[in-house]
């Protein structure tokens, strides 16, 4: 059989044929669906990604560049506010800040959003109350600048968190699209042909079985006919023998009418046989 190497190992039964048929149908529907679920569709469902979505690839990269450049600007402003602190405090506060960091005031919450079957992550920033490691930094001088710098950096970090969401969405999207493409290809080039092959195989096997069955039935019928014919002949012989015996014994006692009667019956039956 030609498809023997590329089919599933099933017994060619009607039940597995039904199974294969529904499998093929499923694969085809899945294929159509997956093909439609391309990048843009996922993108359009996701608000953050939406900002960046566009069919023109240059446009997309331009927007991402823009988002990243915005980060560049925000970070620059933040860095500058740190320079202000250095100016106002008149020294380096870096070490002190590093040492007095204890508990994060600024944290993120991570969640996933289901977008047409793809889970895209989203970070959400929040600040915990009562955590103020640097409240007293620059108490003697520069405190106002320190506070301002903290606010500027907090805003900058918020931007960073937003960007991180966006970026992770792309990373995952990248992954998803690869997987989807792999699946589409697999379905198109492996699963569908293979299922079709299997169906073909099962069909041909079943046909073969049908033919065998028919032949076998015929054989059985023939044999049965032969057997019947043989039995009939035997019966006739027996009957004939019996008649002869009867005639031999009954000729002395019975009259001619009886003889004619039986002879008529036999004659009729013989006629019928000829017709048959």
């Amino acid at each position: 059989m030609s498809g023997a190497t590329n089919r599933e190992a099933v017994f060619p039964t009607r039940q597995s044929l039904g199974l294969m048929k529904s499998k093929l149908k499923g694969a085809q529907t899945g294929h159509d669906l997956l093909k439609r679920k391309n990048v843009s569709e996922v993108i359009y469902h996701y608000p953050v990604v939406q900002i960046l979505s566009s069919h023109a690839t240059t446009e997309i990269t331009r927007r991402i560049d823009e988002a990243k450049r915005k980060m560049g600007r925000v970070m620059q402003i933040a860095a500058f506010s740190l320079a202000e602190v250095t100016y106002a405090v008149g020294g380096d506060i870096g070490y002190q800040v590093q040492e007095s960091a204890k508990s994060a005031r600024f944290r993120v919450r991570t969640k996933q959003e289901n977008v047409s079957g793809v889970f895209l992550p989203a970070f959400e920033s929040y600040t915990t109350d009562g955590n103020n490691d640097f409240g007293l930094t620059g108490l003697g001088k520069g405190g106002q600048q320190v506070q301002r710098c903290r606010e500027t950096y907090a805003r900058a970090v918020e931007t960073l968190v937003e960007l991180a969401s966006l970026q992770t969405a792309f990373v995952i999207l990248d992954e998803v699209i690869k997987v989807v493409n792999r699946r589409v290809n697999a379905i198109e080039h492996v699963i569908i042909p293979r299922t079709e092959n299997t169906i073909k195989y099962i069909n041909s096997e079943l046909d073969e079985l049908d033919r065998e069955e028919f032949f076998r039935l015929k054989k059985v019928q023939n044999k049965k006919q032969r057997d019947t014919a043989a039995q009939d002949a035997e019966m006739r012989l027996k009957l004939a023998a019996a008649e002869k015996a009867e005639a031999a014994s009954g000729a002395t006692s019975s009259d001619k009418e009886n003889e004619a009667g039986t002879g008529d019956i036999l004659g009729e039956s013989e006629d019928a046989d000829v017709i048959f």
Partner: peptide, 10 residues
């Protein structure tokens, strides 16, 4: 230093 000032340090 800046990011720690924003409060991310832990």
């Amino acid at each position: 230093t800046g990011l720690l000032l924003a409060g991310i340090g832990h």
